[in-house]
């Protein structure tokens, strides 16, 4: 506060983060010492969901206060769809457990959008989604999957835990557990399928094994001359055409979609026919450059992996269709009491 004044900025509104409630007395004190009117001292207590915060502020009159200070006047006040989000969040009808096979298990902000998109998928299905972070370096990783209703492998870089992720994808395929792969999660699914279904022993991505005999994942052709690391990946929105009748088509309800990307590696087209003939469906394609965008498994309740990052486009008021359907498949598994212990 003192430092803010030194710089020449006087706060108009004070938002106080606090584990304990800030009572009127405390507000008065803060108001006095910080030279902010009482009405502009706003409490921000810990809440179950971040989506409750707008209402917490609204109840304390923060929006009225800001409107007044900025001499703004509008009539409308429409928070209906937002309130419906919060209502659904607070009264889930069911609960599911999703295993997240990532690298940064101790720091959840590393997968912020994925976590939130799962919450949104839960909102769409009136389900509470519990996330179990897996330790992918654990050789007995299958033991961590007991009681999970779905497996999600998010994007990532670096080779730590890669074999654990491949093992998890194999279990998802064989034990018919709903699987959702994002970016690296697609590459993992393709490597696993190549090794264990196509029997291409040593199949890998050239990101992790440059000498692999079966480089089923390889650098994008346009990436081969790229030296700088900053802002040089295949980034942002690209279009994708879906295969008719695929799980993805069913989810989106349209054949033409666009999604956001962030990658350098990609399914190696040399292996595409082999993969398809063995039952890995190429459900999404970026036609202009002939790049695989989505793979799916038939004879599986729900196995979808995409090269793009659908999590970036999911919103609480508009849950992403793939997250919605993934959570729905998990709910189905939970409700059918499919709870076979997963053996190695």
């Amino acid at each position: 506060m003192q430092k803010l004044r030194e710089i020449g900025i006087a706060p108009d509104v004070l938002v106080c983060r606090s584990e304990k409630p800030v009572d009127a007395n405390m507000k008065a004190k803060l108001s006095m010492f910080c030279s902010v009117p009482k009405e502009s001292v706003i409490e921000a207590p810990d809440v179950d969901s971040i989506y409750e915060v707008p209402m917490v502020f609204h109840k304390q009159g923060l929006d009225d206060q800001i409107m007044m200070l900025l001499r703004l006047r509008t009539q409308s006040k429409d928070l209906d769809s937002w309130n419906e989000v919060v209502r659904r969040l607070k009264a889930p009808k069911r609960e599911i457990v999703v295993a997240l096979a990532g690298k940064y298990t101790d720091y959840k902000d590393a997968y912020k959008s994925v976590n939130e998109a799962l919450v949104h998928g839960g909102i769409a299905n009136e389900a509470k989604v519990k996330i179990r972070f897996l330790d992918t370096t654990d050789p007995k990783i299958h033991e961590q999957l007991d009681g999970v209703h779905g497996i999600l492998v998010p994007g990532g870089f670096g080779d730590r835990g890669i074999e654990g992720k491949i093992r998890v994808a194999q279990l998802a395929r064989e034990k018919k557990i709903p699987y959702f792969g994002l970016c690296l999660g697609l590459q993992i699914a393709v490597i696993e399928f190549s090794r264990n279904v196509l029997k291409l022993s040593g199949a890998h991505s050239t990101e992790f094994d440059q000498k692999s005999r079966y480089p089923v994942i390889d650098l994008l052709p346009e990436q081969k001359s790229v030296k700088d690391k900053g802002a040089t990946m295949r980034l942002g929105t690209y279009e994708c055409t879906l295969k008719k009748g695929s799980l993805s088509h069913k989810a989106y309800g349209t054949l033409n979609i666009s999604e956001r990307h962030r990658h350098r590696f990609e399914v190696n087209n040399k292996f595409r026919k082999l993969l398809e003939d063995a039952g890995l469906s190429i459900a999404g394609l970026h036609a202009p450059k002939n790049l695989v965008e989505i793979v799916e498994l038939k004879d599986h309740p729900w196995f979808v992996a995409c090269q793009f990052h659908p999590e970036f486009k999911s919103r609480p008021e508009a849950p992403h269709p793939l997250f919605r359907d993934f959570v729905s498949a998990c709910v189905e598994r939970a409700e059918n009491h499919v709870r076979n212990p997963i053996h190695a």
Binding site: V53, P54, D63, M67, T74, Q75, K77, D78, L79
Partner: peptide
């Protein structure tokens, strides 16, 4: 909580038609 605070204020003002 700064990002959430900023976003929440944004949401409230948006709901006022701004």
């Amino acid at each position: 909580g700064k990002g959430i605070t900023a976003s929440s204020i944004g949401k409230l003002l948006q709901s006022r038609g701004l």
